[in-house]
Design a protein around this nucleic acid. Sequence first.
DNA 1: GTGTGACTTTAAGTCCGTA
DNA 2: ATACGGACTTAAAGTCACA
Lengths: 71, 71
Amino acid sequence: MKGLEARFGELLKELRNKKGLTQEELATDCGLDRTYISMLERGLRQPTLTTLFKIAEVLNVSPSSIVKQLE
Amino acid sequence: MKGLEARFGELLKELRNKKGLTQEELATDCGLDRTYISMLERGLRQPTLTTLFKIAEVLNVSPSSIVKQLE
DNA sequence: GTGTGACTTTAAGTCCGTA
DNA sequence: ATACGGACTTAAAGTCACA
């Protein structure tokens, strides 16, 4: 079983690509840093609840649907 | 609109009480500190993804169902 | 059984850059 | 456009004593 952070990272990358956004665009729209998005996608960081909600909003998905895919 | 942390805290308290657990029991079962649970319930901390998953497991609810109630 | 303040350590998150 | 690194600031993790 891969770690939670790694699975979140993969999912984030997938959702971001599906939306046709670059890491930089996603970061800007979320009010986050470009390098932080990179770290999230590589499984080097894990988001807080607030960050999860911010990202989900920009990606036009519900936060719970993201979490559900990690269960 | 109340902050996300505050709403998570209220929900956590509600779910914990529904399960008939004290903060102390929940904390022990999660491998967390009692005072940390207290801070979460008061909205003074916000959980990371990992902490959310730990707590949800002990409360016998899915992490996504918790998140869904915060949307 | 819980709230709270003070605290130390770890991780979240930013900002600079290179390749 | 992204990976990756160092140095940094802010907040979360995690603990303790006391009310």
